[in-house]
Write a protein that binds this DNA or RNA. Structure first.
Length: 135
DNA sequence: AGGTTGACTGGGG
DNA sequence: TCCCCAGCCAACC
């Protein structure tokens, strides 16, 4: 179990995993044609992140077939429509969005803790336990 | 049309 | 883990 959890963190491993590739393909094929908008696709995926789990910008980008467009995902979040659980999207280190995107990083942390996200003493999310697995 | 920017990431040191 | 560099992509000016 430790191995599985661990492998979930690295995108490299995820990319090699046939299941992940399938998920990416599904999301891409389903939305690319009808939306034609990168942001739309990002929002669709973010909306699928369950409470108690978090996803990284790079992970979402990879799901859309653009593993190097993590920056773009973050930008999409800045324009995210209301109702989207964008507080569940964090960077690879498990840190909150900088500045006061949510009023304050502490506020975002509070939201996540309320959903059951586990934080480490260093103030970061325990990615081993809380990283969302699209499968 | 072209340059800059951004809630990022991976690699090398 | 942190710092610096390069890459990627769409929005903005």
């Amino acid at each position: 179990m430790k191995d599985r959890l661990n492998s979930g963190i690295g995108f490299g491993s995820a990319a090699s995993c046939p299941d992940s590739a399938d998920a990416a393909n599904d999301a891409d094929a389903a939305d690319t044609a009808s939306t034609g908008g990168f942001f739309r696709q990002v929002y669709a995926i973010v909306g699928q992140i369950p409470a108690g789990r978090v996803a990284t910008y790079g992970q979402i980008a990879a799901l859309l077939g653009r593993p190097l467009a993590a920056k773009m995902v973050g930008f999409a979040m800045s324009q995210a429509p209301a109702g989207l659980p964008c507080h569940r999207v964090v960077n690879r280190l498990g840190e909150m969005a900088p500045r006061d995107i949510f009023g304050s990083p502490a506020f975002q942390q509070r939201l996540l803790e309320d959903e059951g996200i586990v934080f480490l003493p260093n103030g970061r999310i325990d990615m081993k336990k809380c990283l969302w697995d699209p499968r």
